[in-house]
Design a protein around this nucleic acid. Sequence first.
DNA 1: CGCCTTTGACCGGCGC
DNA 2: GCGCCGGTCAAAGGCG
Length: 203
Amino acid sequence: MSIKKLMQSGWSSFVFFAYYISSDFRQTSTRLGCRNRSAKRVQKGTRQPRFAFMTKSEIDHLEDGYRWRKYGQKVVKNSPFPRSYYRCTHSKCNVKKRVERSSQDPSIVITTYEGQHCHHTTVSASPRADASPSQQLASSAPQIRLPAMQFHRNPPVLPVIHPGRVIGPRYEERTASAVERTSPAPTDEGLLDDVVPSGMRRR
DNA sequence: CGCCTTTGACCGGCGC
DNA sequence: GCGCCGGTCAAAGGCG
């Protein structure tokens, strides 16, 4: 999917900022919910690769080819919008994603994927008859397969589009700090902030 | 009936 | 130690 095609499809502002959080970036499990009820819980010390991107969309839960089950929603500090937590419905897949609207720009949806899929996409390109309203809404939009979940070893080459211009090199070459330096994108206090290196965070 | 969302409660980490 | 916070669980209910 080229930028040009995105523009032609009316999604000119769809993806304009993306970055990859490498697996050794930081331990993600230490701050995760730590109740030890479920065997599926990410064990302490294991590191899950994270990938976060911002999209300009009215749809919160974007169709990405996988099926997700929402397991929580939480109002987070510094954001008037709730953060939603989704888990891949595949039984052996431990991938999670968080979806949150930017407090700076409500039209921007920040999605963070965590983990790696151990299976292929499960949702067909056509809308599922039994899809939830949000899924149906998403399916009614131009189908854009977000490659975020296919970066098992080679992160995808997403168009890094800033409003009005293309910024930066291919994002897998950029570190989060590079993003910080090169991107004038609004610093989000919510989910985006959560994937910023701990040393760059206030807390 | 199966799958999904919603939502309040619960838990551990962290800062003070 | 206490309270805040983020993440998760699980029961309840909705929907096709």
